[in-house]
Computed example of a mutant assay.
Amino acid sequence: MNNCLHCGIATANPKYCSRSHAAIHTNQQAPKRQLTRKCQECDTLIPGSRQFCAVHGKRKADYRLLTVAQLKAKDAIKHPSYYRGYLNSITRLLNAHRPRTCQAYGYDKHVEYCHIQPISAFPDSVMVQEVSGPENILVLCPNCHWEYDHSLSAINPALPSQ
């Protein structure tokens, strides 16, 4: 009889009493996710998928409080049109609390966020929260979104229920 290397219980197996104890012991000895990167603000080691440590990650700017011009300038290294993608992700965050059903017909399989007033109609000095906040967003299915954008639909852009 041998003793489990993890818990010390007697076992017929040469090293471990179960597969889970083998996995636990092996993962403690050689973890897969190693701290390979340094925080951009300090020298703290962090997982490779992150950019900031816990302290500096919380201090990052709140995107809702940025202006459209600041959002465009934030990633000036990349192509200028990339800000639309960031703006769309912020739109999803700002409207995550709303029901994901089409405001026109109640379709709930796939919906999109449609700007009542187009993004291009706003000056660069406007805050992102005003451009993509619930007051300027309709939740529509792709067909209704296209019809609304091309003035083919009479969807009432009244303030949505929250």
Rank of each mutant, 00 (worst) to 15 (best):
M1I: 13
M1K: 14
N2Q: 11
N3S: 13
C7F: 11
I9F: 05
P14Q: 10
K15P: 00
Y16L: 07
C17H: 10
R19E: 02
S20D: 12
H21N: 12
A22T: 03
T26Y: 13
Q34H: 14
L35A: 03
R37L: 02
C39M: 07
Q40M: 15
T44V: 15
T44A: 13
L45E: 15
G48R: 11
Q51N: 15
C53S: 11
A54H: 11
A54P: 01
G57N: 12
K60E: 14
K60C: 11
K60V: 15
D62S: 00
Y63C: 01
Y63Q: 03
Y63I: 03
R64C: 03
R64A: 10
V68T: 09
V68L: 15
A69I: 02
A69N: 00
L71Q: 09
K72E: 04
K74I: 03
H79F: 04
Y82C: 06
L87A: 05
L87R: 07
R92Y: 11
R92C: 08
L93D: 12
L94N: 08
N95G: 12
A96E: 11
H97E: 12
H97Y: 13
P99L: 09
R100E: 04
R100V: 02
C102G: 10
C102A: 09
G106A: 02
D108H: 12
E112F: 06
P118K: 04
S120F: 11
A121C: 07
A121G: 07
P123T: 14
S125H: 12
V126L: 10
V126D: 01
V128L: 13
V128N: 08
P134E: 10
E135R: 09
N136G: 10
V139H: 05
L140D: 01
L140M: 05
N143V: 09
C144W: 07
C144Q: 10
W146G: 01
D149A: 10
S151C: 03
L152T: 00
A154Q: 11
N156S: 09
S161Q: 04
